[in-house]
């Protein structure tokens, strides 16, 4: 999966935040809508689309979407 595809799938997990807000540099935990329910959707998306497992602690550790993407891709 490319970084661009990942950013777009990541954005899809949000109901209220417009898609154009999301870039590889987005610090997702600073977004108003970010919270445990969106995080569950992200974990579930990574599981389904990338067949990889990402944990809550890893989501906390990363800051930008790109950082998270690199961490998952390296698995």
């Amino acid at each position: 999966m490319t970084l661009e595809e990942f950013v777009s799938l990541f954005a899809e997990q949000f109901d209220d935040t417009p898609a154009e807000v999301f870039t590889p540099e987005t610090k997702y935990s600073t977004l108003d809508e970010w919270g445990s329910l969106v995080a569950l959707s992200v974990i579930s998306m990574v599981d389904e689309e990338m067949d990889k497992s990402v944990s809550g602690s890893e989501l906390k550790k990363c800051s930008t979407i790109e950082e998270l993407y690199n961490l998952i891709e390296a698995k």
Binding site: S36, L40, I43, S44, D47, S53, G56
Partner: peptide
Amino acid sequence: MNGLDVFPFAIK
């Protein structure tokens, strides 16, 4: 409960 760590374990 750290639900975000239970969740990936449970779906796997």
